[in-house]
Amino acid sequence: MKNYFLYISLAFLFVFSSCKKEETPKPKVIYEDTSKAKRDVTVDATQLEIADLPIHMEGTNYLIHPIGEVSNNKKSIKYSYDSEAGFTISNYGEFQITGNLRNLKFQELGKDTIYALTEKPIFIETATYLKAFSEKSKQQLLVYTLSDLDTNKDNKLDSDDIKSICISEISGKKLTKLSTDFQELIDWKIIEEKNKLFFRTIEDTNKNGVFDKEDGLHYYFVNLLDKDWKVQEYKPI
């Protein structure tokens, strides 16, 4: 009987320890030569690059082509084609493109030329057209949440890397990173009456590789009418 309870106790401890391991957050930053996080990542040969049909945001003069990846496995491609959904890499609604995108390409209406947002590796989660601000200011802008550094050093860019905030003109030109390297974007919003974009980030101040309550928050704003989009930090608390 004693052996029976011993086995049960050991089994419980094993399951409990396994669960604890699974709950441990995966580090978003690996602190090995962080002065130069990798911007070049390996191309995954198992993935096939494709584009969704272009998106036209009302009131703009550009088409936007979302660029992403699907599995290069023949069986997966056949299934995706039959399901009519597997080749869709983005969603569009409320003037925002969402997805796990490798780039965006732009095409001015009436022209054949198509060009990329950037030639550098990136992983885009959202691209938001600031419609209300644009109508008011006559300055059409896009705001992006994306990853541009392989901060966890797994040789790829994805949602496991630090998320940043960037801005560009509606044409995709003048792409500018607003947040600081190695600071994770928390959220952002537009105050149209002030013509300002506000955003918060978190910095891994204790250098444990994850972002938690022990780390420090930063608060920033950008005057969208400023042609250089200069970022300024403020301290509300």
Rank of each mutant, 00 (worst) to 15 (best):
Y115K: 09
A116L: 06
L117D: 02
T118K: 13
E119W: 12
E119P: 01
K120P: 01
P121N: 11
F123I: 02
I124C: 10
E125I: 15
E125P: 02
T126R: 07
T126Y: 02
T126I: 08
T126E: 10
A127F: 04
A127Y: 02
T128K: 12
T128W: 00
Y129R: 03
Y129P: 02
L130E: 01
L130Y: 04
L130D: 01
L130C: 06
K131D: 13
K131H: 12
F133M: 03
E135Y: 06
K136R: 05
K136N: 10
S137F: 02
K138F: 06
K138R: 12
Q139S: 07
Q140K: 14
Y144P: 09
T145I: 13
S147M: 05
S147Y: 02
D148L: 13
D148T: 15
D148S: 13
L149I: 01
L149A: 05
D150H: 11
T151L: 02
T151E: 03
N152D: 15
N152I: 15
N152W: 05
N152V: 15
K153Y: 10
K153L: 15
D154M: 07
N155E: 10
N155P: 04
K156D: 12
L157R: 02
D158E: 11
S159Y: 10
S159K: 10
S159G: 12
S159N: 13
S159I: 14
S159L: 14
S159C: 08
D160H: 12
D161G: 11
D161A: 07
D161P: 13
I162R: 00
I162Y: 00
K163F: 02
K163I: 11
K163N: 11
S164G: 08
I165G: 08
I165A: 09
C166Y: 15
C166M: 14
C166G: 08
I167W: 10
I167G: 15
I167L: 15
E169F: 08
S171F: 06
K173M: 10
K173G: 14
K173Q: 13
K174P: 01
L175W: 10
L175G: 03
L175H: 05
K177I: 14
S179I: 10
T180G: 00
T180K: 07
T180Y: 06
Q183R: 08
Q183Y: 03
E184A: 05
E184K: 11
E184L: 06
L185E: 07
I186G: 00
D187E: 12
W188Q: 04
W188G: 01
K189W: 11
K189T: 13
K189Y: 12
K189L: 09
I190V: 09
I191G: 05
I191F: 08
E192P: 07
E192M: 07
E193Q: 09
E193I: 03
E193N: 08
K194M: 08
L197P: 05
F198H: 04
F199Y: 14
F199D: 04
R200A: 02
R200D: 04
R200C: 01
R200Q: 05
T201Y: 00
I202C: 01
E203C: 00
E203S: 04
D204L: 01
D204A: 03
T205H: 02
